[in-house]
């Protein structure tokens, strides 16, 4: 079974600094593997363990994202494909177009796995777009995937219900965090990861933008809510009484 997993090197939201004017300092910002993409890699590895084959990691990003690609390889993926592009400057459709183009060059995949949403942008758009552009069935928000020969059964976790959906291989999916517990790579795996093959492709070459403009970011700003930051001390009973006093004074306790 050939398994493709899409992994994003996301901006680390906790580390992101805000400039004096309130705009985020994105140039040189720290990055990390998009949180739920760990679940996507884990699910790929789980399917490989059950059905043999290979797990190929696809990533659209700058050269700094190689770190995250290596992390996916250390978890156990067999090889990686890095499509170079500036992820902050492009929209979901463009990212998806590059991912689909890179996958088509690497041959036909039986299962394409993304996560439900990237931890920095959280659009949830790339996965269905990749499925659409590859022209294969798509079943998103998977919390369970079972494959038997050419038939797959997927449980979709929606807001108020769980749907069971049948699809034929090949198909594309996005996973939710409750699907599995991602493994941590061992030191040996981390060392071995640097020996695994990584192919580099130029995003503009494999999927030219043409005249399409897509979604543009006009501005970004951070306006943290002002809070009082009063720390209440004392024994539990003293602290509880002081807190209730404060809340009554605020008029928020009826």
């Amino acid at each position: 079974m050939k398994i493709a997993v899409c992994v994003k090197h996301a901006v680390d939201e906790a580390e992101l600094k805000i400039g004096p004017g309130g705009s985020p300092l994105l140039a040189g910002a720290a990055g990390k593997m998009s949180t739920f993409d760990k679940n996507a890699v884990e699910e790929g590895l789980r399917l490989k363990a059950a059905h043999q084959g290979e797990v190929v990691v696809f990533m659209v990003g700058g050269t700094e994202s190689k770190k995250t690609l290596k992390e996916a390889l250390a978890m156990g993926a067999d090889r990686g494909v890095l499509v170079t592009a500036d992820t902050v400057a492009i929209d979901a459709l463009r990212t998806a177009t590059m991912l689909a183009a890179a996958m088509k060059r690497s041959g036909r995949f039986d299962v394409v796995i993304c996560s439900e949403g990237a931890s920095d942008t959280y659009t949830g758009q790339v996965p269905p777009m990749v499925g659409e552009l590859l022209g294969i069935p798509y079943v998103g928000y998977a919390r369970k995937i079972e494959i038997d020969g050419k038939a797959a059964k997927i449980e979709r976790s929606l807001e108020d219900s769980v749907e069971s959906v049948e699809a034929a291989v090949p198909f594309a999916t996005s996973v939710v965090s409750e699907i599995n517990d991602p493994r941590y790579p061992t030191l040996i795996q981390i060392m071995q990861a640097s020996k695994k093959p990584v192919e580099e492709l130029n995003g503009e070459e494999i999927a030219p933008a043409g005249s399409r403009r897509g979604v543009e970011v006009l501005s970004m700003s951070s306006q943290p809510t002002a809070r009082k930051h009063v720390m209440i001390d004392g024994s539990p009973d003293e602290a509880a009484a002081k807190l209730l006093d404060a809340l009554s004074k605020e008029g928020v306790l009826k």
Binding site: D91, L93, T123, G124, Q125, P128, Y138
Partner: peptide, 21 residues
């Protein structure tokens, strides 16, 4: 919604146009 995101994304991909999230 979860379904709505999927419909919107697939629609935008079919039409080749932008999709705001």
């Amino acid at each position: 919604t979860r379904d709505g995101r999927e419909v919107a994304s697939r629609l935008a991909a079919k039409l080749g146009i932008g999709c705001m999230a």
